[in-house]
Design a binder for these strands. Sequence first.
DNA 1: ATAATTTTTTAGATAAGACTAAAATTATTT
DNA 2: AAATAATTTTAGTCTTATCTAAAAAATTAT
Lengths: 217, 217
Amino acid sequence: MFSLSEENYLKSIYHLEAVHGKGISTNSIAKKLDTKASSVTDMIKKLAQKEMLVYKRYQGVSLTKLGRKEATNIVRKHRLWEVFLVDKLNFSWDEVHDVAEQLEHIKSPKLIDELDAFLDFPKMDPHGDPIPDKEGNFQKIEKKLLSTLEEGKIGICVGVDDSSSDFLKYLDKNNISLGQKVKVVSKESFDGSLTIVINTKEITISKKISNNIYIQS
Amino acid sequence: MFSLSEENYLKSIYHLEAVHGKGISTNSIAKKLDTKASSVTDMIKKLAQKEMLVYKRYQGVSLTKLGRKEATNIVRKHRLWEVFLVDKLNFSWDEVHDVAEQLEHIKSPKLIDELDAFLDFPKMDPHGDPIPDKEGNFQKIEKKLLSTLEEGKIGICVGVDDSSSDFLKYLDKNNISLGQKVKVVSKESFDGSLTIVINTKEITISKKISNNIYIQS
DNA sequence: ATAATTTTTTAGATAAGACTAAAATTATTT
DNA sequence: AAATAATTTTAGTCTTATCTAAAAAATTAT
């Protein structure tokens, strides 16, 4: 069994590995968890002892197969709860994160499997992120950043990178949601801003925005 | 905000007060929480400082209005989650307790109100215990112990006192469930055992069993 | 290649919550 | 009303997870 803290470390390292590959630095973990590097050192020693990750002083850490399995299960729980909150309890996609962050630590294999079935085995969470199945497998879908789409091309919004409430509210305000068709009208080479058509309406979005929206094209 | 530990203390004291009235002893709390009296003393000092209860050395404790409100809310959450687990996730009534024990500590007012609505504002949990509403009010239903029912009389099972898995499984095995009609055929004065009719089947139950079943008659 | 900087680790401290053992208080017997 | 027993509190220790400050190692710049 893992403590709440241990689980949060495993999850963070898992997410960092997904972006940066193996060998995650102490500092990056500290930043992600909003804690101090010295606290991270303590915890990764503990997790190394539990064989959840491989650690050599000053070399950063990498999850073991076991550690990845554990982390995947937490991610699975987090995302299933997000689906539950949105589909069944009328939460909007910008409200789910904090609650799911708590619910993901509930320990009961039966609970999560029944929840999965109750939700009809969803493959994606409300932000377009894949939900691992019981064994930890999930579909990796084709997706690229909206910022990489060329002028005149069309894509379908399939996910977001940043899931902060502010960003999601911005998307809501501009009618950008998952499954939405997006056409790039023009691209400003100076600042990378895009003019796009959403639902027949034309809007201009900054590079920062287009860097946080995933599309399929 | 309260810690997990603080919440568990409040809940335990609340339940003890429901049975024994005001002035709950350190030892009884320790027993209920399976901890040591010295730990209880520490915690009740803390909760007294937070004005959740009134405490005078060697005199036991009583919840304040605020403390009772807090405790009631935890009970509300516990029981709503139990309904969710049984009604939506196919848990049986003997499986819900441990999971609800975890879920009751999730902090999100919206979550619990939406859950309440999603479950259609249930008034009772799977063991026949009343679910407080948002304001902390709940129906107190007429009920008495099956052991007090006289020979020849009929009652309807409306709740259980002991909610341990073992006891609930025993009831399942003998087709005793909430809403079930029970008729007392005879009462053995020597050991207090009862012979009852459930669903046309006659069985004999010990005093210990009949002392844990609530009926309405 | 050495100096300066950044990152990481160690050492020691703190807070929450639990424990043991002993002291203080209350309750019960005789 | 003492004496004994039971309960409760205090004092001090332990663990977990955090922190600060300083030391050690690695990286970057001169």
